[in-house]
Design a protein around this nucleic acid. Structure first.
Lengths: 220, 220
DNA sequence: ATAAAAGTTTAGATTAATCTAAAAAAAGAA
DNA sequence: TTCTTTTTTTAGATTAATCTAAACTTTTAT
């Protein structure tokens, strides 16, 4: 069984490697976990000894199959807890992250399976991130950035790529959540900002920077 | 903020001292926490420095006001989580303890207040233990042991004094939970065992040892 | 191609929580 | 009361996770 700290390293590496695709550098991990490179070197040696990752001196690490499975289990727990906090306890979606960071380390398969059932086996969390299933399978949705959407077309918001409280609060104010249907009404050529209409007919103007951080999927 | 370990010591001392009434010995704490007396001595020195308890060498410890408040907050969290696990996730009442031992250490006031509201501000957990309120106030119920009940009288089961899985499973099999109304039908003079009738008219014979571990309160 | 910069590792310490073994104090028994 | 037993504390180590400073590798720039 992994310690709290080991789990955090595995999760960080998973995210930084884009779900285990690419190798991750010592400094990236240190930055992400707000710790020092020397500390990271020590820890990745330990994780390498446990066969959770492959480590080549000076060339970073990449997760093993076992490491990826561990990461997926932690991500699953994190996202189920976030869903619980928002759907059942009424948290704002910008308030959930820190608490879920703690809850994801609770060790109990029974708990997580019962929580999953209680939530109705959700496929995505409140930010639109897919929740890995019990076996670590992640359902991939065909999605792309809102900035690539076409004028006049309707889409469903599927995910937001920025978890900062200010950004999430901004979106919340304009009722932009995963699951919401939007239609692109206008794309301004000079700065790439766009006007989108919500279900309730309200229109919002989004800067290019913002529309790049919102992912959408086709309207079926 | 207290560490996981510090919280466990404070909670153990709280329970062993009967809610902070009496002093607790080093050995009792070591036994309860499955650790060594030397370790306990070190830790209580640390907790004494933080003004969580009063420590007199060779004469044990007693919780300070601050220590008691901390303990009550942990107990509150533990019991709210147990209630959640049983009421919302469908855990059996003998399965909840270990998981609640982990959940009680999650740090978030918002979480615990929202959980409390979600559960409808329960006054007792599934074992009938009172849940301290936000301010640490514990509602005391006038209760006594079933073994002291009178023949023919009706009572409500209010608490069970043994948390072992086997005992709880035994009670569950006979539908004996806090909140259930029972009537004493017969008390056998030679061994003190008694026959009680449940709401559904079923009768169960309980040994003296068992009836001593079940607490009851008056039927209003 | 080589020197400077950036990134990484090693060496040596530190802190929290734990342990064993030995010393000291308190409690119980003769 | 004095000796034995039990309980508690102290001393000295250990492990996990962290740090700083120095050494070493790789990358970048001139």
């Amino acid at each position: 069984m992994l310690s709290f700290t080991e789990e955090n390293y595995i999760k960080a590496i998973y995210h930084l490697s884009d779900a285990g695709q690419l190798a991750v550098s010592t400094n990236d991990i240190a930055l992400h976990l707000q710790t020092k490179a020397a500390t990271v070197t020590d820890m990745i040696k330990k994780l390498a000894n446990k066969d959770l990752l492959a480590y080549e001196k000076y060339y970073g690490v990449s997760l093993s199959k076992k490491g990826k499975n561990n990461a997926l289990s932690i991500v699953r727990k994190h996202r189920l807890w976030e869903t619980f906090l928002v759907e059942k306890l009424g948290f704002q979606w910008d308030e959930v992250h820190e608490v879920a960071e703690q809850l994801e380390h609770i060790q109990s398969n029974l708990l997580i399976e019962k929580l999953d059932a209680f939530l109705g086996h959700p496929e995505t969390d409140p930010h639109g991130h897919p929740i890995p299933d019990k076996n670590g399978k992640v359902k991939q949705i065909k999605q792309f950035s809102l900035s690539q959407g076409k004028n006049g077309h309707k889409y469903i918001v599927s995910e937001v790529k920025d978890g900062s409280a200010t950004f999430l609060q901004y979106l919340a104010k304009h009722d932009l959540y995963p699951g919401v249907t939007i239609q692109i009404k206008e794309i301004l050529p000079f700065d790439g900002s766009m006007v989108v209409q919500l279900q309730n007919k309200q229109k919002v103007t989004l800067s290019k920077a913002t529309s790049e951080k919102i992912l959408i999927k086709s309207n079926e």
